[in-house]
Design a protein around this nucleic acid. Structure first.
Length: 255
DNA sequence: ATGGTCGGGGACCGA
């Protein structure tokens, strides 16, 4: 089973890229973030033509998440039970007995902002939700745009970035709390080239200079992670015309 | 500095 995550920064603009990439990469499951469109605008038919089921939790202008999957999704959840939130940032479904949790974690802006406080409370609600999911499901994969760089090696210039948002101790502690529930960042189970990133700033030739960060993650529950046979970042779509600032992250499982 | 959205200019948001 091949599973992937991609923050597309507007599905309206990137639908061509996504269809092209599905054709090339042929994943069984693809989770999307920042689709920035309402459910009524979601192009489910275009995915259906390629043989995929497609579900979305959409929002106008901002946020919005979707799951594209060869096998039928069931038991769909779009909200945390304990967080009243109009922002569409989570989409959970069961696919082939695997619980797929697609996340678009809030950015947080700066560590002294209200958005940062929202990010931390959102992560707290996520952890509560994950505990509930673990009580119900054995095989869980959490993937998406975490907006957290796990370690300094996940940042192009960690010294310059310091403890700013994406790298602040509180965010990283929240990510550690998630991992400690019994998950593995599968990308790090395999040898990777140094300075592997999943996002590059559009500005100042970020991609050309490889001035990026690795914030798009795939976390698998421990038993599942044992069956992970590879994980990679596909930089190719970032080279295409009018790209998203993120590129797909992939994990392959022998299941 | 760049890109998307909404709206019809420029503010907001992203990481």
């Amino acid at each position: 089973m091949k599973i992937a995550t991609w923050n597309v920064n507007s599905l309206n603009v990137r639908i061509g890229h996504v269809l092209e990439w599905l054709d090339i990469a042929n994943p069984d499951i693809l989770t999307l973030q920042e689709i920035k469109q309402l459910d009524e605008a979601f192009p489910a038919d275009a995915f259906k033509e390629l043989g995929y089921h497609a579900i979305s939790s959409g929002q106008k202008t901002y946020n919005g998440v979707a799951i594209i999957t060869k096998d039928k999704p069931s038991d769909i959840v779009t909200d945390f039970p304990d967080l009243e939130d109009p922002q569409r940032r989570i989409l959970t479904a069961t696919i082939n007995n695997n619980r797929i949790i697609n996340l678009y974690v809030p950015n947080g802006q700066t560590v002294d902002s209200d958005k940062y406080i929202y990010k931390l409370s959102w992560l707290e609600a996520l952890i509560k939700f994950l505990k509930q999911e673990q009580a119900k499901h054995k095989n869980i994969i959490i993937l998406g745009d975490f907006n957290i760089a796990p370690e300094d090696r996940d940042v192009y210039d960690a010294e310059k970035w310091g403890e700013e948002v994406l790298c602040s101790p509180k965010e990283r502690a929240a990510l550690s709390d998630i991992i400690d529930l019994g998950f593995c960042d599968v990308f790090r189970q395999f040898e990777q080239v140094e300075k592997s990133f999943s996002w590059w700033d559009y500005r100042a030739a970020g991609f050309r200079r490889n001035a990026g960060v690795r914030i798009d993650l795939i976390l698998a529950s421990k038993d599942l992670a044992k069956n992970c046979i590879g994980s990679s970042i596909d930089k190719e779509p970032r080279t295409w015309e009018r790209p998203s600032d993120h590129t797909p992250v992939i994990a392959e499982f022998d299941i």
